[in-house]
Design a protein around this nucleic acid. Structure first.
Length: 663
DNA sequence: AATCGTCTGCTTTTT
DNA sequence: GCAGACGATT
């Protein structure tokens, strides 16, 4: 019996359901299909859907998987399978059991900017006059330590180590955790509390992990702890697509899989359903240069295809112009919709010239990445209000909402309150309610604090009441606190005011929808928001040409891909040489190449504007590595002298012939 | 206390 | 070339 229309290797992966399984899934080899089929197979084999756990890195991936599964099995069964990101799973674990670690179950989750803000404060308090420490550096240090399993610094000889320990103590007293803590504390919980461990081990009897090459030490620990019974662990990944080493991902997790889970079944998926053989040939040729990898050779039944073109351009302006015109040409000649084109680059700064050219030719495009809706001031304020209602000890959020609206509580008062709270070892909220503190203030100021505290207290009570409709509570709070009025007042233009107000209303509507959807309450809503910044951001069809970084393009595919700036110093990036991560840069290029379904265009410049001034450029050393039969090198001069339309007519012909040949 | 101006220093950023 | 940070100026 053939299963769900799978190839032989895919089917072997799906049918292997006892003990550890390593699926090495090259780019475009139908990895998601295998995972979802395997879940369906497990259910068909009698496994309770509730005992199946599938872990991903992004909410998008989890969502896609859920959708596909819903089409394959009974809807109710599909709903009972846990498909979640690592972080979301950890939140679930911790909301239930974090009290065992000395936090309260209503803990706040701090995002990047709140984390940085807190660190800045701690650095100011900790550093001596002549000492300097950048909050970003401290953050990186702390994140690295946590991701390798260290919850504190053993000795405080360096400033950054002292800051680390203070930061961690401070978070705990704020009843708050950062992103890394979610993993760290979940692991700690399972390690130190056998009854909690037993509970979760019993719940999840079949565990699958997507993008395993991107897991870090903590994520591996988490999986090991959860699976440490029946050891039914299936990991899927591609060591050649490991591009997040700089964020703590350990490619060794997949390379040395058998060390962590002895005697695994191993399945390699090498048949690619995405690209032409020319594109795969170039990709294979490139990646062979990496040491230490599971050897793989991607192939496709989809024919040879057009050669990869590598084009030299005089400078970055010409490059952007050429790439955009090339897209327009193909769109016109072949009638390919805009959304089947993508331009990939190493760093966001490279998007500017491309955007300019696309706008010039009135070509629709979407820029992936950039600042999020959730980074807007008014949205952060709104979320801080919500966080305060649930966790009054969250000083950072409380400070934020006190300062969001001028209410006669100034900086010096807050400084004194903070100082008081530190001495009394209590939270800011408690200090502001403390008669011993209030009595020492001018009566006007004390009165204002009392008023605000009374307001908050009333709303906290409302929020804690059973059957509360949080969207109503928040609407009232936004009005009564004066937040909305002040938001309008503080805007420079009426348009801006309207815009910001609309944003807040959108949040309230979104909360209201969330409440109608389920019973996660305000806490659940906040969790979802902090763990999924792209939620509700619909991918509207007809959005146009995609501009995207190589990192963000992983997991996506486009019919026609242009990869720009293939120069030494950009790809590979200069910094990678210092850090010894040339292999990772090569993988990044590999990821870029394998996004292309039909055509791939590579460009590099002889010179470009760098940091304001002109700088000479040299072709990326990776270009030499793929040079050969798959790649056609085109010089700018040749391009200008040979009329382009001829070329396109010829390739159109070749395509038609290939299409006919297939039929 | 706020705002303007100059100095600096440059990736990638799933959660 | 441009954003973000910090410091001097009103």
């Amino acid at each position: 019996m053939r299963l769900f229309d799978l190839n032989e290797a895919q089917e072997r992966a799906v049918r292997s359901i006892a003990g550890p399984l390593l699926i090495l899934a090259g780019a475009g080899t139908g990895k998601t299909r295998v995972i979802t089929s395997r879940v369906a197979f497990l259910i068909a084999q009698g496994f309770d859907p509730g005992c199946i756990l599938a872990l991903t890195f992004t909410n998008k991936a989890a969502g896609e998987m859920r959708e596909r599964l819903a089409r394959m099995v009974d809807k109710e069964d599909a709903k009972r399978v846990t498909m979640s990101t690592f972080h979301a799973l950890c939140v679930r674990l911790l909301r239930q059991h974090i009290d065992k670690l000395g936090y309260k179950n209503n803990f706040s989750i701090y995002d990047d900017s709140e984390q940085t803000g807190l660190l800045k404060k701690i650095i100011v308090r900790t550093a001596a006059k002549d000492e300097k420490l950048d909050a970003q550096i401290a953050k990186a240090f702390i994140s690295k330590a946590k991701n390798s399993g260290r919850a504190f610094a053993e000795n405080e000889e360096t400033l950054v180590a002292a800051v680390f320990n203070r930061y961690q103590r401070q978070l705990k007293s704020l009843n708050a955790v950062d992103f890394d803590d979610l993993l760290l504390l979940a692991v700690q919980l399972l390690k130190e509390h056998p009854e909690a461990r037993a509970h979760w081990q019993k719940k999840y009897r079949q565990i699958m992990v997507d993008e395993f090459q991107d897991t870090n030490r903590l994520q591996l620990d988490l999986v090991s702890l959860l699976a440490d019974g029946e050891r039914n662990v299936c990991v899927v990944g591609d060591d050649d697509q490991s591009i997040y080493g700089w964020r703590g991902a350990e490619a060794s997790n997949i390379l040395d899989f058998e060390r962590h889970f002895p005697n695994p079944a191993i399945v390699k998926l090498e048949q690619n359903y995405r690209s032409t053989n020319v594109i795969l040939g170039a990709a294979n040729k490139l990646i062979r240069n990496n040491p230490r990898r599971h050897p793989k050779n991607l192939w496709s039944a989809g024919g040879e295809g057009e050669k990869v073109r590598a084009v030299q351009m005089p400078d970055d302006r010409e490059e952007a112009k050429f790439v955009v015109e090339e897209i327009q040409r193909r769109q016109t000649v072949e009638g390919v919709p805009w959304e089947e084109f993508a331009v990939l680059y190493r760093m966001n700064a490279q998007s500017r010239l491309l955007e300019e050219n696309l706008r010039r030719l009135r070509i629709p495009y979407r820029l992936v990445g950039g600042k999020s809706f959730y980074d807007r001031r008014e949205i952060k304020d709104f979320l801080a209000y919500a966080a305060c209602l649930l966790n009054p000890d969250d000083d950072i959020s409380l400070l934020r909402i006190i300062q969001a609206t001028p209410r006669g509580i100034g900086e010096s008062t807050l400084d004194r309150a903070l100082e008081f709270s530190v001495r009394a070892k209590s939270s800011l909220f408690r200090a502001l309610n403390e008669p011993a503190f209030l009595d020492a203030l001018p009566s006007r100021t004390a009165g204002r604090i009392k008023d605000f505290m009374a307001l908050l207290d009333a709303y906290e009570t409302r929020a804690a009441a059973p059957l509360t409709v949080f969207s109503t509570v928040m609407t009232d709070l936004m009005l009564e606190s004066g937040f909305l009025d002040d938001l309008k007042r503080s805007c420079a233009t009426p348009e801006e005011a309207l815009n910001r107000e609309t944003n807040v209303k959108q949040m309230i509507e979104s909360l209201s929808r969330y409440e109608q959807r389920g019973n996660g309450g305000l806490q659940g809503f906040l969790d979802e928001v902090s763990l999924d910044r792209s939620r509700e951001e619909k991918e509207e069809p007809g959005a146009g040409v995609t501009l995207i970084t190589l990192h963000a393009a992983k997991g996506l595919e486009f019919r026609h891909v242009a990869l720009v700036g293939l120069e030494e110093g950009i790809l590979p990036h200069d910094r990678s040489k210092l850090e010894g991560s040339l292999d990772e840069e090569r993988r990044l290029f590999y990821v870029g190449i394998t996004r292309a379904m039909r055509t791939l265009l590579l460009t590099y410049c002889r010179g470009r504007v760098k940091f304001g001034g002109a700088a000479p450029c040299h072709p990326s050393s990776f270009l030499k590595e793929i040079a050969g039969d798959f790649v056609e090198m085109v010089s700018y001069e040749k391009l200008m002298s040979a009329p382009v339309p001829q070329e396109s007519v010829k390739s159109r012909f070749a395509q038609l012939r290939a299409a006919v040949a297939k039929m």
